[in-house]
């Protein structure tokens, strides 16, 4: 294992986060805080409790997930796309590093950023609403698994994209709608039966449901199923990345 390389890539990516602190940390925290103010305090105070949890508290896990998903994807995709765009990727590709080491560096850094952002948002949310964490270990597990899975997904996206538009189209047109329709702001049990069934095809339902369960023990689907879906998504992304490095897809001619 080339630990020096992993450390170098990781440090390089984390340095990028420090250089762009406002964009990396302040912006997602601010936008999520606005959700708390609008949906939690202003509108949420007029909405009745959901499964015994105030609306403001109910949306906290979903909003943290929303930030983690979007930040994981954007950080990881940008992290690998920018070197492709500028041409500096040649150095990584010509270095004595395996795909596992490249992943540990890039995806590790993107996941770290997401976990930091998720933790900050959690802390910020506690200023606005009452938060309980019934299963802290499961909460951390979901936080880390989701960060890693979607950072991997972002990494794949960054390699696949051959232009800035492609880089942004998936997060905006696919991930964002799926997150909003995945139970961030509501329980899918509040939907008509048909839409409840349709929602089960949305993979993000399982992530948000599982994460919410770790807070309030309320879930739309079973925690085991949520965990299984998250791990499955992680494995699928790993297989795709393995294939990319084996074939050199969009990396080596």
């Amino acid at each position: 294992m080339n630990f020096h390389a992993v450390r170098s890539i990781y440090k390089f990516e984390m340095a990028r986060m420090r250089r762009t602190l406002v964009q990396s940390i302040v912006a997602p925290v601010l936008s999520t805080s606005l959700y708390f103010v609008i949906f939690g305090a202003a509108i949420g105070s007029r909405i009745p409790e959901i499964d015994g949890v105030s609306y403001g508290s109910f949306i906290v896990p979903g909003l943290i997930m929303l930030s983690i998903l979007t930040e994981s994807i954007s950080n990881a995709s940008f992290g690998i796309y920018f070197p492709k765009f500028t041409g500096t990727i040649f150095e990584v590709l010509s270095a004595p590093v395996s795909f596992v080491e490249i992943l540990l560096g890039y995806v590790g850094a993107a996941s770290t950023k997401s976990v930091i952002i998720g933790t900050i948002i959690l802390g910020t949310a506690s200023f606005f609403v009452d938060i309980e964490i019934a299963h802290p270990f499961v909460m951390v597990l979901f936080l880390v698994l989701t960060s890693v899975s979607f950072s991997l997904f972002g990494f794949v996206l960054g390699i696949w994209a051959d232009g800035w538009e492609k880089l942004t189209v998936v997060p905006i047109l696919v991930i964002m709608p799926l997150t909003f329709l995945g139970g961030t702001f509501y329980s899918i049990s509040m939907l008509p039966p048909v839409w409840q069934t349709i929602s089960l095809f949305n993979p993000l339902v399982y992530l948000i449901s599982g994460f919410r369960w770790s807070f309030y023990e309320n879930a739309d689907v079973s925690i085991i199923l949520s965990l299984a879906m998250t791990v499955t998504f992680l494995l699928v992304c790993l297989v795709i990345v393995r294939w990319i490095f084996k074939t050199g897809y969009k990396l080596r001619t």
Binding site: H4, I9, K11, A95, P96, V97
Partner: peptide, 9 residues
């Protein structure tokens, strides 16, 4: 320094 680390030194 990044390059040196990347190449395992």
């Amino acid at each position: 320094n990044f390059s040196r680390g990347l190449f395992g030194k």
